[in-house]
Design a protein around this nucleic acid. Sequence first.
RNA 1: CGGGAUGUAGCAUAAUGGUAGUGUACGCGGUUUGGGACCGUGUGGCCCGGGUUCGAUUCCCGGCUUCCCGACCA
Length: 421
Amino acid sequence: MRQSKLFTKTRKEAPSDEVAKNAQLLLRAGYIYKNMAGAYTFLPLGLQVIERINTIIREEMDAIGGQEMHMPSLQEPSLWEKTDRWSDENVDVWFKSELAAGGAVGLAWTHEEVITEIMRQYVASYKDLPLFAYQIQTKFRNEIRAKSGIMRTREFWMKDLYSFCATEEQHNDFYEACADAYMKIFNRLGIGEQTYKTFASGGAFTKFSHEFQTLAEAGEDVVYVSKAKGIAVNEEVLEEADLSELGVTKDGLEKCKSIEVGNIFSLGTKFSDALGLTYKDESGTDVPVIMGSYGIGPARAMGTVVDLLADEKGIVWPESIAPYQIHLVGLNLDDAEMRDYVEGLYTSLRNRGVSVLFDDRDLRPGEKFADSDLLGMPYRVVASKKTKESGSFEVVTRATGDTRYLTEEELYADFGATADA
RNA sequence: CGGGAUGUAGCAUAAUGGUAGUGUACGCGGUUUGGGACCGUGUGGCCCGGGUUCGAUUCCCGGCUUCCCGACCA
């Protein structure tokens, strides 16, 4: 991508009302645009990050047997009345409206009811189970207070997977597999080290549910962490004093701020009972399906990565989700010979499948470096008169600031075969 | 939803009961060219409604917006 053609621009200052670090940097760098409280546009660069996060999520969900689908946001009340989740008294986050044709309609804030209803048509026998279906889809929640930039919005993407099992054993196996897959996802996003599988209260069906909490000063949540054991518990569990089961004591836990980047729940037969989702076991008896739900918010994950990895100069993307692997910064481009030279390098890199953002603008070096730092691509390749004369390019690793000088061939060898390209 | 703030140009800010200044960004001309350089010049602005007043961006009332704290948060 040529930066000169990118319609977004960087800016030196963030809007004064945006205090969250993630949103400040993403706004300044032109990844997102704020439309209203709790609703952001994902601009070309920002959307690429989201897409790459989604790809990682898809790969890990598919690897544990997930099948992707897509359900509508529009919801009719009658379905939700069956589980008593339509009324404003029970659920206060509905966006509700009227159909022009008559009748009420709501915007989905989750999809348990919807997918359970769908599965009534496809689940009949124990032979149909287990099955796992997911989507990456827009959720709407009428939050009283949106806040923290892209971390808590009223409209947001969510990867929600639902599991349907015949037996507790099937369910527990999948639950653990999904928990492992979640940690793989957060590792691939570059926030695995700070992310803890956190015990939360489980509701009616199980002792615990689990949240995935990433330790961060900007977090809204508070968790109690045992870094030695690699686990955390949230406040409600701490109060319930069943810590002994987890092999930790209250005194051994460190109180930390955190961001909830994912959660997994055992739902038991709550929804299958309410909506009549049963299967026939080997004796021909109707048995309610055991369900679970598993969520990750891609945009919140993106904000978490920014919060955790950014430095004073700007965003630092891990290679796994950066919009481009290389930021090719061309200098001295007013010189026709230099421009040809750098254009040639850009073309060669692209021909080798390298993902490149090419700063082909005729600006002063300082401005280009500052922009490059702010945008946060993993590697910056500088091509200038200086590097041309020396026969090598300056390659700077954004995260560490390490600088190397590579010849054109070395550059291709290093980046030409990257799987991420 | 309770409490507290907020609203001036694309963005950041200043002053003011007599229609607003600066920085940045943007346009033009020129000097520059490895860390947001400089000179000249130009474009562009008081959230909405009502009230007080000769006159309101300014004061008052209401609304809306946005932010923060709390509550809430599969």
